[in-house]
Write a protein that binds this DNA or RNA. Structure first.
Lengths: 209, 209
DNA sequence: TGCGTAATACTCGTCTGCGAGTACTCGTAG
DNA sequence: CTACGAGTACTCGCAGACGAGTATTACGCA
């Protein structure tokens, strides 16, 4: 039980907003959304209330008041506690300081790319490349637009994302090059395997690693 | 309901092994583990049986026999169906062809790096850089060792991972550079904020984007 | 003034993921 | 020859995640 008391990243997001001022859950979601954080961490309504309740259970936030404002449903406003502040900082420290690498799904796909023939593989990789290009472009545009409005520090995540997107695009382009020019060794063996369904006779490679 | 009938990636892994020959769940896990796939997709025993059951429910695999071999607990052996084959290929196609980008936790950390002061940020980033270096090194070693034993095609995922790790390391190094040389604009405002806890007066940036 | 639609602020129940057990067996060191 | 630890092959139950629903109010507009 070395695990974080509240494991959901949404909890981190909640802490980050409630740090500024007390809020009720719905407002947290609204603020997060409006700041564009929901692009990185999609807000699930179902989880929000569970997560806030958990944060409360562990003493990271506490209920301040229950306002019956106008005729609207009753809202419970939460405030961050000192323990919550600590937890938040510590969490950020962990996130920044350690690479845990939840393995990207693309990697799983790559490791099984064999089942598609080379031709399908090429097609799919082209699609991916296109999407990566669009994503990079969108980030560049966002940066350009935001740069004059915000301190650099608040844009660093976008710069990072852009850098990584470009890196991936570069890699995919390189791999694609190898596939299309036929530079990748074993390309025809691959094609033969995919068409006939049978391996060449070099299967001894499974036992090791 | 556009979602995949069995959503868990572990399902993909199961399909990928059961494609070669019929197996019982425990054996699937063993094979996966022994091939080192468990580095990318940690096998959770709890999920394995649920996932296999689900695959069966949707007709992607079917039970072949229940062997009572020796005195061991009874094992149910599963075989892939044609539908399972299709599902598998389609899944791989999706994985390779579309970038869905489950947002890296590091990005979340970066977007909140403000709460750590610049000094702590620097420390943590140094740690990360070190870990990235180790990871890259490990991958390079693995590649060198495996290259003569396996066709290139089976190493492509590792090459990809290496490329991405290096890219991240490069980015972190660059950012760290800016922080340590003081090239990052607003660095002292940041330090002041962290020490005193109060913002400079430019808060108008929250409302837009 | 009446009506449809959007926004507000949740609640509920299902379904999944998975950690922690369980029970049996085999090899082997003493 | 027997006790013990490591492997084998699962089962169970709970905690969390999340979609879909609900009830109320505000607001545009014809």
């Amino acid at each position: 039980m070395k695990r974080r008391k509240v494991g959901n990243v949404l909890g981190l997001a909640v802490l980050s907003v409630v740090l500024e001022r007390p809020m009720h859950p719905y407002e947290m979601a609204a603020v997060l959304k409006q700041r564009g954080k929901d692009a990185d961490l999609p807000i699930k309504w179902g989880s929000l209330y569970t997560v806030v309740a958990n944060l409360e259970k562990h003493g990271f936030v506490e209920a301040v008041e229950s306002v019956k404002d106008g005729g609207r449903p009753e809202r419970t406003v939460y405030r961050i506690t000192p323990a919550g502040r600590d937890e938040f900082e510590d969490w950020v420290r962990e996130l920044v300081g350690t690479v845990d690498r939840e393995p990207p799904r693309f990697k799983a796909g790559l490791s099984m790319i064999g089942v598609l023939g080379p031709d399908q593989a090429i097609g799919r990789l082209r699609e991916r490349l296109e999407q990566l290009g669009a994503r990079a472009e969108a980030h560049r545009a966002a940066l350009e637009q935001l740069r004059p409005l915000m301190p650099r520090l608040f844009l660093v995540e976008v710069e990072y994302d852009l850098a990584m997107t470009e890196a991936e695009a570069r890699w995919v382009r390189g791999f694609l090059e190898e596939l299309t020019t036929g530079a990748l060794p074993g390309l025809d063996a691959w094609r033969r395997y995919h068409e006939t369904g049978e391996f060449p006779d070099d299967l001894g490679e499974f036992v090791e690693r």
